[in-house]
């Protein structure tokens, strides 16, 4: 049974679009649900300021939604893409783009729900600090979106770059690997960044005068949590832009697919772990402001150790790409 190129490309565009929106909906829905549940608790605690809490909940949910809106944009793009003159490689590029934004939206969606929820809980506890809480929530959840934005950039590159001059074997595997690498590595970073942001909102509600220290620690912690997704982005760029010599061997393709899988999966754990470390530090900076320096130092040392496995994963990926 022979398929035309156009049929194959269209098939992959539709499958990729489905995967993009299906996976992309998971994270934001969970995150927004968490925000709403905390908002409900907050309203039951202080019904008099339910208006403020409700407003804050909606703002927080709107930010959490953006990850799945990225997925929606990519899915719609893929459904209506012009594929009249497409090369067969476009098929795997589109499939990779779907995987990339689908996985990439999960972490950011769940993560940005935490600051939203904790800010609602905080407003019921400290109504006077409401504006500080909302500002801190917005900063924290905006940083959580970065991994999803990385995924969207890679997905857009996969959709719009013209790969027709590259050899089909093994470039098809490099393109799927590029999608997996950024997409999966973004899960951990998004989720971890959210943990840190949630703890900072909780801390500010407890000690409104600690806001400066808490926000700084949160931003440093979140920045380190983003590193695994930056490693993922790096591996994706190498897979996208390196020209691979034509090779009919299955092993050449599988090495590139394996490189993407390795960095993608390997980024999940360190991203979450770094976020947990940041969560612990931020929480205690708010309770014990005098020792903010020591806490920040411990956090950074702990994060550096937790980062090491992401670095191992990157080394194995680079070996698979360049040495094998």
């Amino acid at each position: 049974m022979e398929f035309e190129t156009q049929t194959i490309v269209r098939m992959c565009a539709y499958t990729g679009g489905g995967i993009a929106m299906g996976l992309g909906a998971v994270g934001a829905a969970i995150g927004e649900g968490y925000t709403a549940s905390e908002a409900n608790l907050a309203v039951s605690r202080s019904p008099k300021i339910s208006g403020d809490i409700f407003k804050n909940m909606l703002v927080g949910q709107a930010v959490a939604e953006s990850a799945s809106i990225f997925a929606l944009v990519i899915a719609i793009l893929m459904l209506f893409l012009d594929i009249q003159t497409a090369h067969v490689l476009k098929a795997s590029a589109l499939f990779g783009a779907g995987l990339c934004i689908g996985f990439g939206a999960i972490g950011a969606g769940i993560g940005s729900g935490f600051p939203g929820g904790q800010a609602c809980a905080g407003i019921s506890r400290q109504p006077a600090a409401a504006s500080q809480l909302t500002t801190n929530m917005l900063i924290g959840s905006a940083v959580c979106q970065t991994p999803a934005i990385f995924s969207m950039v890679v997905a857009l590159m996969l959709i719009f770059i013209d790969f027709s001059n590259a050899p089909l074997y093994p470039t098809w595997a490099a393109l799927i690997g590029a999608g997996l690498s950024t997409g999966m590595a973004a899960i951990g970073s998004g989720y971890g960044g959210g943990l840190a942001a949630g703890a900072s909102c909780e801390g500010i509600a407890r000690q409104p005068n600690s806001v400066g220290n808490v926000t700084t620690t949160m931003l440093v912690g979140q920045a380190v949590s983003q590193t695994p997704s930056i490693f993922g982005l790096l591996v994706s760029f190498i897979l996208l832009f390196k020209t691979f010599p034509q090779s009919g061997a299955l092993s050449a393709s599988m090495a590139l697919l394996g490189a993407g899988l390795c960095m993608g999966l390997g980024g999940i754990g360190p991203g979450i772990g770094n976020g947990m470390a940041a969560e612990g530090a931020v929480k205690w900076v708010a309770r014990n402001m005098n020792h903010a320096g020591e806490l920040m130092r411990t956090m950074l040392v702990g994060q550096a150790v937790s980062q090491s496995t992401a670095i191992y994963a990157m080394v194995v990926s680079l070996v698979l790409i360049f040495v094998i």
Binding site: G192, I272, G273, A277
Partner: peptide
Amino acid sequence: AIGPGVGEG
């Protein structure tokens, strides 16, 4: 890499 990353965190 997932386990050690989360555990060390």
